[in-house]
């Protein structure tokens, strides 16, 4: 009898699967575990949700309009970027 992975190990594999293809053995065990474990399915959703939200945050312009309202701690003169020699 093959034991499916415990949730702790599944969390590691879910993260790893976002970075590299898993081996056949781990892939199958992961699929079996996800089929029978609602907690780990939710973890998978959350991990993918965080990943896509991060991509959106860094790749698109949605935050820009708010930015000008907040002061910048390192603020020197506004012309500094242009005055800087190459």
């Amino acid at each position: 009898m093959i034991r499916t992975h415990a949730c702790r190990r599944v969390a590691e594999l879910l993260s790893q699967s976002l970075d590299e293809p898993l081996g056949l053995f781990d892939t199958i065990r992961l699929r079996v575990h996800l089929a029978i474990c609602g907690n780990c399915r939710h973890v998978e959703e959350q991990l993918k949700g965080v990943q896509s939200l991060t991509a959106t945050f860094f790749e698109t312009d949605t935050a820009l309009e708010d930015d000008a309202k907040e002061p910048v701690a390192h603020g020197e003169g506004q012309r500094a970027p242009l005055d800087r020699p190459r």
Binding site: H5, A6, C7, H42, Q46
Partner: peptide, 10 residues
């Protein structure tokens, strides 16, 4: 190796 608390849906 199981979760202490139930994991809510995203």
């Amino acid at each position: 190796g199981g979760y202490v608390d139930p994991v809510p849906a995203w």
